[in-house]
Computed example of a mutant assay.
Amino acid sequence: MEIRKLTSEDAKAYWDLRLEALQQDPEAFATTYKDAISRVDPLIRVARNLDSEVSATLGAFIDNELVGVMTIAEEGAPKLRHRVNLFAVYVTPRVRGKRIGMALLQAVIEHSKQLPDVEKINLTVVSTNDRAIKLYEKVGFKSFGLEHHAMKIDDTYVDEIYMSLAW
């Protein structure tokens, strides 16, 4: 397995995995598959995001295939620059259970620690995603809040847990 920061050259592989994520785990993402596929020139937007200086997407590859991703984004306001936000987390089901999520998360933490002024990572996770919650807790993330009805999918509400890891 190889873990590295994605660039604009990885836009197609990222976009394909993102669409899979939106179909496989729709409750975990605010964006819907329908919204995603209706975007104009999505690969241009993805490429621009992957080359951004204020965010980084790390990808896990097995045999040159992108199988997992995690994105961190820096805050712009001076009083918030001590933190980054983790989002767009996904590992394809066919390789789950092989510690890819753990390897990606450790790489994200190490990458974040190298950023100037950054002291912590914040994230939200769907309250029913026990595997993800356990993964985050295993590396030291602590929960600090729960948002009831954070998202609504058709007539069903989804709660999100807020978590943070500080160093």
Rank of each mutant, 00 (worst) to 15 (best):
R45I: 15
A47T: 04
N49H: 11
L50I: 01
L50S: 06
D51L: 09
E53F: 07
V54R: 13
V54A: 12
A56E: 05
A56D: 07
L58C: 09
G59L: 05
A60T: 05
A60S: 03
A60W: 00
A60Y: 02
D63M: 03
D63N: 14
N64D: 11
L66Y: 00
V67K: 04
G68H: 03
V69M: 15
T71M: 05
A73K: 10
A73Y: 06
A73C: 06
G76H: 09
R81C: 12
R81T: 15
H82E: 03
H82R: 02
R83Y: 06
R83A: 08
V84L: 05
Y90S: 01
Y90L: 01
P93S: 00
R94A: 09
V95G: 02
V95M: 06
K98C: 10
K98G: 05
I100E: 03
M102H: 14
M102E: 13
L104Q: 09
L105Q: 10
Q106K: 15
A107P: 01
A107W: 05
I109P: 07
E110N: 15
E110Q: 14
E110W: 12
E110M: 13
H111P: 08
H111F: 15
H111C: 10
S112A: 15
K113F: 11
Q114L: 14
P116T: 11
V118E: 01
E119P: 06
I121R: 08
V125E: 08
V125Q: 11
T128E: 15
R131T: 14
R131D: 15
A132N: 04
A132D: 08
A132T: 06
I133C: 09
L135V: 10
Y136S: 08
E137Y: 06
V139S: 02
G140T: 13
F141W: 08
